[in-house]
Design a protein around this nucleic acid. Structure first.
Lengths: 106, 106
DNA sequence: TTTTCACTTGAACAACTATTCAACTGAAAT
DNA sequence: ATTTCAGTTGAATAGTTGTTCAAGTGAAAA
């Protein structure tokens, strides 16, 4: 771990914060499976279209997403493999590192 | 990327959120360099002791920290290497993946 | 060119979060 | 046993964030 400069910390924190909402993380996890348009995501979660759009806007503002148009739809996907790694990493961590939080016996 | 269950998403999102604050991430980065007590952290950042304590409480509640006592001081450190990886990963991502966000020329 | 429609966006409101203060806790030192 | 002091915690406040609504965009289809 090299000494960390302030700007990097801020950028990294913004990335973490963007990923730190269950709804947004679920969206990212969905996109990790493949491209999807806004309507598809909305349908999959039974939520407002504009809710999804705002959510994607947050993720996009941190450069976590890529998008392209196909016909009338806009297809979203993860920006790169790095984003997938972060998700995978945290999910792995979340399933393993869940100590029972009990003191050594007696 | 395996299909993700709801509980894992929630835990992972909580971890990300805890890391998604510049002050907290700075603290984690500092602890990645080695153990430190609350006073040291406070001194290093010129902040209130209770501010630091509350901050550590948030990180601790997501199992990101370990602590042990030495004399009158309580030494904090990262819970495990996994946490260091997450930090390192995001910092790496933050320094590289910063596209100039400009369209292809002309 | 006009219409359509998928998506985006600003504003508003409710829900959540970070910091500070002041009081408290408890292990260590005396 | 008493004192000390590093750290913790509940409450209050100010600032931030997520969702929704309603209006607006703009590329594609007609």
């Amino acid at each position: 771990m090299p000494p960390v400069d302030e700007a990097s910390i801020d950028v990294a924190a913004r990335i973490f914060r963007a990923m730190g909402d269950p709804a947004r993380l679920r969206t990212l996890a969905m996109l990790a499976q493949g491209e999807a348009c806004v309507s598809e995501i909305a349908a999959a979660t039974s939520e407002e279209l504009s809710t999804i759009s705002q959510r994607l806007r947050v993720l996009r503002s941190e450069n976590l997403l890529a998008r392209r148009r196909r016909g009338k739809h806009i297809l979203y996907s993860l920006a790169d493999q790095h984003v997938a790694s972060l998700i995978f990493n945290a999910l792995a961590h979340s399933t393993e590192n869940m100590p029972v939080k009990r003191k050594a016996q007696k």
